[in-house]
Simulated scan of single mutants.
Amino acid sequence: MSNKKYFETYAVRGASCGDNVTGSISYPIYQTATFKHAGLNNSTGYDYSRVKNPTTEELEKTVALLENGKGAIAFSSGVAAITACIYLFKFGDHVILSDDLYGGSFRLFNQTFKNFEVNSTFVDTTDTNNILNALTKKTRAIFLETPSNPTMKVTDISAVAKICKKNNLLLIVDNTFLTPYYQKPLDLGADLVIHSGTKYLGGHNDVLSGFVVANDESLIERLRNINMSTGAVLSAFDSWLILRGIKTLHIRLDRAQENAIKIAQFLNNNTNVEKVYYVGLEDFEGYELNKSQATGFGSTLSFRLKDKNLVPKILEEVKVITFAESLGGVETLITYPYTQTHADIPEQIKQRLGIDEYLLRLSVGVENIYDLIEDLKRVIGV
């Protein structure tokens, strides 16, 4: 199942290839909170939608199939999926995380769960020595984003997996940026894979969702119990929207990546741009490593301007590109990480990572490339 040539077929047809009861090509939306029983101790297998719903179950099976996992659990958002993983730990446990990652992940570990004494250390995981130096007797997991958000650092998943296996740690990888179409962390040794399904899996900026995928049955059951107990479940209708989005995932990603490469090259040669952060540029630091563990580069990139005074002009005057948070949809979005996605990260850390007043992030969509580049030329110059 791991051969990429199968991916497109599974994405389009899903785990069940439609509804086998009625023959419906589109898997039905089971818009119900509860299910009737034929009698005492006689259940259909579905009792209450917070526990299990057929539409959500079909989505979970499809996502697990695409990630080469044994099981997946759907959540109401990507942050809810990350939160469920943190619930695997207990008072006093320690987690090592990539230092350049989504601001919401940073907030969860550094603020919310710090109150429950789940301790965290943020390091540059592109150098495994940093990980080794951060290990303590209470370390229980390593949490990676690769490529990272927003400066696109690439971490060697297999190398970190070896450290985890040697020290009996969980390896958690956020695979939102590349999706299972381009990268399969479980095949590289990860224990848990996280997705904000809001992004590329949904692909149309119209639904929130999150996923955790695993190969270990006991982990799957623990996470499913956490999901059921805490209640951050995905609704049937939202599950159907993600199923529909996944059908075109490979088409959208290939087209968006094609656009992203051309935009990255344009920005790389722009006199008003100091640096472009995109793993698809051959001279980018993580290019070769990303090629060794992924089959694509994705369509998210960041770039640093030489003059921060250009930022308001760009954000206010783009016409084809939209100034909005999030990423992974068919529309091209531009974001200002300094005050938006990474606002809760302390100033000294942002400055060290280069998340400052000069940095912008682009989520490249599937519009005509000429329109996108002309829009950028108009607001940035050449």
Rank of each mutant, 00 (worst) to 15 (best):
R140L: 13
G286Q: 08
P54G: 02
L301A: 05
Y87H: 14
L108I: 05
T126F: 07
K184V: 12
E317Y: 07
G14V: 08
A159N: 15
T230Y: 11
R50D: 07
G210D: 09
I345H: 00
I246N: 03
A134E: 03
I226G: 01
G286Y: 12
N130T: 00
S235W: 05
K137H: 15
R140D: 08
H250V: 01
K137G: 13
D344N: 14
H94F: 15
S77K: 13
H250A: 08
V193D: 03
T139L: 02
Q340H: 14
V273M: 11
V21K: 12
V279M: 09
H342C: 09
K114F: 15
I355G: 00
P180S: 11
F106R: 01
E288A: 15
G197Q: 08
Y182W: 10
L234R: 07
K319I: 03
Q183I: 03
Y287G: 09
G69S: 09
I82K: 04
M152C: 12
L360Y: 05
G69Y: 12
I29Q: 02
G354C: 02
K114M: 13
D187Y: 09
L301P: 02
E285W: 14
E117I: 10
A141I: 05
G328W: 05
F303K: 04
N53Y: 02
R352I: 07
S363T: 13
I242W: 07
L376K: 09
S105P: 00
L327G: 10
S363I: 12
A190M: 08
D100C: 10
T128R: 05
I172L: 04
Y6D: 08
L360E: 01
R252M: 14
Q31P: 06
I345V: 15
D124F: 01
E288T: 15
P312D: 06
R361S: 10
L305F: 09
L359I: 06
E288H: 15
R224M: 12
V79S: 05
F122L: 10
T155R: 00
D100I: 03
F297C: 10
K138N: 15
S196Y: 15
S24T: 12
A343F: 13
P180L: 07
G69F: 10
A134V: 04
T62R: 01
T56Y: 06
